[in-house]
Amino acid sequence: MNKKKLATVWLGGCSGCHMSLLDIDERILDVAKLADIVKSPVVDGKDFPEVDIALVEGSVTSDEHLAELLHIRKNTKTLIAFGDCAAMTNVTGMRNYFDLKDVFETSYVNSISNDQEGEVPDNPYLLRLHDKVLPLQECVPVDFVIPGCPPNADTIFYVLFEFLNDRTPNLSEAKKLKYG
């Protein structure tokens, strides 16, 4: 049997979902039997290759994230939104209640530690933030969603294992749905 190619991606999130992925502990060996992890924040890799399954953590917050996500979508068979941020923006989306300008000023200019000397950085090489943080399915079609902040290691393993064995998991039937 051909080994599948698996990638994990970290967009606008806290990496907590990746920590939870590591919590599947020795079951990672079962995953490794069925798949090669070809691209991940914990694996060295340059460009995003063509993969069978991609776990995408975090929401889309900037033009760089969007370009990356569109590239991932083109090169991925099964795109999985990984965690609450990817599914429904969660904590990353908390800046959406305010104007982006106010958010910048609060963090760079008005915060107490800046001693009133701070200024909003304006460098073309910096990320260009979107007005609103978006969940993945607002930008590209998503094949599967694992909610949770972070998702349980058991849930992650269950979903991975099902997909690696060419089955479609059902979180609702497996009673593994969890938000927060």
Partner: peptide
């Protein structure tokens, strides 16, 4: 959970 909502 009851209606099986994974994402909004």
């Amino acid at each position: 959970y009851k209606v099986g909502m994974e994402a909004i």
